[in-house]
Design a protein around this nucleic acid. Sequence first.
DNA 1: GTAAATATTCTTGCATACAAGAAATCAATT
DNA 2: AATTGATTTCTTGTATGCAAGAATATTTAC
Lengths: 216, 216
Amino acid sequence: MTENVVQRLRDQIENGIISNDFAPGERLDEVQLATRFGVSRTPVREALMQLNAIGLVEIRPRRGAIVIDPGPHRIFEMFEVMAEIEGMAGSLAARRLTETDRAAILSAHADCERSSSAGDSDAYYYDNERFHRAIYTASHNEFLTEQCIALHRRLQPYRRLQLRVRNRVATSFSEHGSIVEALLAGDAERARTLLRQHVSIQGERFSDLVATMSHR
Amino acid sequence: MTENVVQRLRDQIENGIISNDFAPGERLDEVQLATRFGVSRTPVREALMQLNAIGLVEIRPRRGAIVIDPGPHRIFEMFEVMAEIEGMAGSLAARRLTETDRAAILSAHADCERSSSAGDSDAYYYDNERFHRAIYTASHNEFLTEQCIALHRRLQPYRRLQLRVRNRVATSFSEHGSIVEALLAGDAERARTLLRQHVSIQGERFSDLVATMSHR
DNA sequence: GTAAATATTCTTGCATACAAGAAATCAATT
DNA sequence: AATTGATTTCTTGTATGCAAGAATATTTAC
């Protein structure tokens, strides 16, 4: 047991929430989780409080923890913020791109091309994440990078739903193309605008998301 | 004990860190804190883990918690992000401003005028916070508002130092004036730019901050 | 039969206990 | 005297225990 139990629990419960094993609104019983993971209540409690601090669960005094259900409106708000800070990362990346950054972005982009043309939306999901992370890194703002990764992670389940929408993978990849161009050209404002549009879920994209959310 | 102990501890320790009672790098001993606040170790531990999740303390396995020392570079990064999301809030506020929002912003602005012309930098600090929060609220994006408040809070000690710099209060207030104009005019892009500039600490402002930080 | 009041059970919140790892002290050897 | 090794002390990490509030079941009155 090289890593401590609380961290492990936190990750496991977090993954459970993200992968929808624990549904939104579901109550997370301390003893139940404790026996399930073969530990005592104490580390479970500590893990739950951490998830509470992150915003994944809500702890009501004396009434236990429940998985937060963001609801369409809040999800829209989160995407709105995500679009903006991704745009910021793109803008900074365009100005601060190093040779290493350039290589990482192009490599991820090439992988996206493969999984996209193969029509493998699960693989694309993974490669897409690498692509975006490469841009965060290229912003050379570690704090921003951490924020982006955290938000990206929280929106993960909804992004995944989005990719299932017809033609979304192909559209996404073609948008990546323009983004890469802007980044390599050092065009900060264009990179910002393109990334913002790429991430934001306006109009019918939002309707699609809500529709997909309801029947899962 | 109407409110739970952990929340209270979290706030107290957080305030201790922000007000520099607990210096960066300082080790936070569990039993020491427990006896000091008259509770057992368990809630102290839980509070520390929450602060860890927020990013205010670092918990090294088996070696206790220490107050994180961000260092000038990281602080710069945080201000860079803060500038951007405040700009975003301003942009949204300009487009979505309601009558209530308008009243709240103007009221805070008027208070800023009073404390500014009185030369009371502590009062200005408080009124300034109200002004900025009014803008967050006017963005009508609750998630963004929460993010802004959290970041604002983490940067609080450094903002405070900034206001001590000669003429900074007067400069800040005059910038508020232009921001209010842009908001009332519904000029989203101008509001964004002005707020971004208002918050960001470029060039000599950053040098001033670092200089003030070192000898406190 | 239904609703309110009471009793019982369950669950959380905090305290305490115990084990194991890290730091500190002390001793021994060079 | 200094450095390394062993021992002791101290601190953290996890488990368990106990009390108080919430949920639930049961009973009683209408």
